[in-house]
Design a protein around this nucleic acid. Structure first.
Lengths: 223, 223
DNA sequence: AGCTGACGGAACGGAACGTCTCGTCGACCC
DNA sequence: GGGTCGACGAGACGTTCCGTTCCGTCAGCT
């Protein structure tokens, strides 16, 4: 006669758990998050509604878990380190853009970002599980660049990371202009100008001609 | 015997319109957007539900109009121009931070941003009515700075604007760290390093000592 | 004076919500 | 191997809110 209300994880049905998560990703892709219902997930998964409510607190929580499982979070988020910070950052930002453009990634991410605005609990989990690892990995790479002298010493690396990802998310969320890889390149370009060492006259990275302003990168903008 | 379904704006009851908008802002503040219902707005406004559905297509549309009316959009969004781009940008970003920290602004903005992720129609209106004017004004100010030689010639001003606001929105929406005025200052600082002329050795703005790294601005970050 | 159409109010069917109650079934304990 | 426990699938339940439809009233126009 305890509190009578805490389910026992040891007795949880793994089969049902997976079926629910699978149904959730499928349905988000098919009808979108807004029209997604717990009842539909239960039906698709061949599961009682209560089994969902027993283990998750809300539709958002299910979708978050489903998204984490599907996107294989927990994998290696660390950046490549070629020694060339510009090259590495460009790779990451381009990859981010590519992800954000893919519907299977775009739709749940948008939904979770939106839902996070109204559910602080979900927000924390979403940021910590999905976003933070990427930001942290980028910060780590920047720290390396800082030690190598490619990034100025005084720079606040948290701000530096947001200087890179902020513009991307801004454009993605608000759709003020198309989100392209060229845009990512331009952002990297500008951000590195901000972060680079305070330039003792012309000493900004070996200064190979054409390196600073890559071919088509400039036209990332135009609202 | 026309299509039978287009209401006549000339016969619209202005009193009801205002009552609805007022009720909407009040209720968003009291119960939040998620728990806000059209029925509650109608009741509070002393209005039939149909009167709301006649003039607005969704809860989001009502809240958007209410927010626009309440925030006095359409006012002058143009930036001050003191001739000092850093000073002017710092004023704008600080003001933006202040707004985003005020609940009366924060709550509806979050709700509309979230809702925009699921309603492209609403998204467009929101961005165009609320956001775009500010971005455009900032871009205009940057154009002036560009002509004055405080911003490099080749810079894409659309990207420049997002380099400023992107980090702010990123931190505001995702709550990765506290959104402070010091953070705004740091962002302005870094952004201007990126945008400034390509510095013919030490020529980065007159270089008054302590100007580049304002007192407490550095500690805007730390996740 | 007679129309017209927006109004406040209320009732409606329908969709999901989240809770609750069944009977079943598998895992563990004596 | 019989008994206990609790998660399970199924689905009924009351509730809330949706968006629509009807009604009688009322103000402005012709």
């Amino acid at each position: 006669m305890r509190d009578a209300k805490t389910p026992d994880p040891a007795r949880r049905n793994e089969r049902s758990r997976e079926a629910i998560l699978n149904a959730a990703v499928e349905l988000v892709g098919e009808v979108g998050y807004a029209r997604l219902t717990v009842e539909a997930i239960a039906a698709r998964a061949g599961v009682g509604k209560q089994t969902i409510y027993r283990w998750w607190s809300s539709k958002g929580a299910v979708v978050l878990d489903a998204f984490i499982a599907w996107s294989g979070a927990g994998g290696d988020t660390s950046l490549p380190d070629t020694g060339d910070i510009e090259k590495d950052l460009r790779a990451v930002l381009r990859a981010t853009v590519a992800e954000l453009r893919e519907p299977r990634f775009d739709l749940p991410s948008r939904a979770l970002t939106a839902e996070s605005q109204m559910d602080p609990e979900l927000a924390k989990q979403f940021v910590d599980a999905v976003l933070r690892p990427h930001l942290e990995a980028t910060k780590e790479r920047l720290r390396g660049a800082q030690k190598a002298g490619q990034v100025a010493k005084g720079i606040d690396l948290d701000v530096a990371v947001e200087l890179l990802f902020g513009p991307l998310y801004h454009r993605w969320l608000l759709r003020t202009a198309p989100l392209t890889e060229a845009y990512a390149d331009t952002v990297v370009d500008y951000a590195l100008r901000a972060l680079g060492p305070s330039e003792p006259a012309g000493a900004r990275t070996p200064n190979a001609p054409g390196k600073r302003a890559p071919k088509g990168a400039r036209k990332g903008g135009a609202a």
